[in-house]
């Protein structure tokens, strides 16, 4: 039960942190923000690795492996496409893109 309560603490506090961080993001960044956040939601890849990799075989492993593929597409594609978009953003005065 202690595990549960601890998880709940993390969940509630992380929600608050998320709200505070995102609230003031300028509209111009909303799409990259969403696709970046989207890549982060692929964090379930960690869980997928654990359930697919425990060597038990059977249904659980098969589902886990499917989850590994799904989540990896999400993570890799999400971060790459976000970077591709952010590359294009530049200010009025600097001619070459930033970073």
């Amino acid at each position: 039960m202690a595990d549960w309560t601890l998880g709940l603490y993390v969940f509630v506090l992380a929600m608050l942190v998320g709200i505070e961080l995102i609230r003031r993001v300028p509209p111009t960044l909303h799409t990259p923000l969403m696709s970046g956040a989207n890549a982060i939601s692929g964090i379930s890849l960690l869980g997928a690795l654990l359930v697919a990799g425990d060597g038990s075989g059977g249904l659980s492993t098969a589902l886990g492996l499917a989850a590994v593929v799904f989540a990896t597409v999400n993570v890799v594609g999400g971060f790459l496409v976000t970077d591709r978009m952010l590359q294009m953003f530049r200010r009025r005065d600097d001619s070459p893109p930033r970073n």
Partner: peptide, 15 residues
């Protein structure tokens, strides 16, 4: 997973 999921959940709700 809980931390990252909650962050994304919050971001999506705000948008």
């Amino acid at each position: 997973l809980i931390l990252a999921g909650a962050l994304v959940g919050a971001a999506g709700l705000i948008l």
